[in-house]
Computed example of a mutant assay.
Amino acid sequence: MDEQTVTLRRMTPAEYRSATEEREAETVRELARLMPEELARERTRQGTARFLPEGLDTTGHHLVVAENESGRTVGTAWIGPDPRAGAGTSDSAWLYHVRVLPSFRRQGYGTAILAAAERLVAREGMRALALNVFGGNEAAIALYRRSGYGVSSMYMSKEVGT
């Protein structure tokens, strides 16, 4: 497979709405494995409100569309300040979400989007790009590992009640 390249550009308001709906639905599906669906929906809505209080115009956040060399949209990403650090105190950015559109998966675009995100944060003076991934998302974990990401902490749980 040839190495893919992408260009990142700011989302339009319509793209932002669509990407937010998709991201929130995906997050609810993942969280609903661990908690009641309504609680998963509420936590997801609260997260969006907390981290993107101004939506697309939230300072310090990049809500981007990834386009291939033909100008076709192949995915989206949300990159912003590391939520583990105080405002303006970190040299690490955070990849809140990355998505490759289904028809472009398994073609190298995930790797290309990650590389473009890394270049973006490096231009801003960041030394690291961190992220969180659901433990059961084997495809994403494999992508991150192939791209040089390693585990920096691990949260584990086990169902023990009825």
Rank of each mutant, 00 (worst) to 15 (best):
E24Y: 00
S103N: 08
L63E: 07
T73R: 14
T44V: 03
R105H: 03
D82K: 05
E22W: 15
H97L: 00
G110V: 03
L31A: 12
M126C: 10
T58F: 06
R45D: 06
A66M: 02
M126I: 02
A66S: 04
Q46T: 09
T59G: 01
E26I: 00
E38I: 07
S90H: 02
E67V: 15
T73P: 03
A40E: 11
T111L: 06
L114K: 03
T58G: 06
T73Q: 12
V133N: 00
E21V: 11
L95M: 12
S103V: 10
G135H: 06
G47F: 13
A115G: 05
E67N: 10
L31C: 04
V100Y: 04
G47K: 13
R84V: 05
S70A: 15
A116R: 07
Q46S: 08
T73E: 12
A25W: 01
W94D: 03
L56D: 02
G60Q: 00
R106F: 00
Q107D: 08
Q46A: 13
E21I: 10
A40L: 07
E26H: 04
A93D: 05
R84A: 15
L129S: 07
N132G: 15
P81M: 00
T59A: 11
R33C: 07
Q107C: 10
Y109A: 08
G108W: 03
E22Y: 15
R45W: 02
S70E: 15
A32F: 11
D57M: 10
A32N: 14
P83Q: 04
S90N: 02
S103K: 09
W78N: 05
A85S: 15
G86D: 12
N132K: 10
R29H: 09
R99W: 05
F104L: 03
F104T: 01
W94M: 09
I113M: 01
A93H: 09
R41T: 01
I113G: 00
R72E: 15
F104W: 14
L120H: 01
A87I: 14
P102R: 06
Y109T: 11
V28F: 04
A93L: 08
T76H: 11
T58E: 10
A66C: 02
L52V: 09
V65S: 13
D57V: 04
I79K: 07
A49L: 11
A130V: 09
G80W: 00
W78A: 07
P53S: 07
R23C: 06
G135F: 06
P36Y: 11
G80C: 02
V100R: 07
V121K: 02
T48E: 13
T89R: 14
V121W: 01
G75T: 03
V100M: 05
L131M: 12
I79V: 15
A87V: 14
G47T: 12
G88D: 07
E54Y: 09
L114S: 06
T73D: 05
R123S: 14
S70C: 07
M35F: 08
Y96D: 14
A32W: 14
G108Y: 03
I113P: 01
G75V: 02
R123C: 08
R84W: 13
R127V: 10
A25P: 00
H62M: 08
E26S: 12
L95V: 03
A66P: 02
V133S: 05
P83M: 04
A117L: 00
T44S: 08
E67C: 15
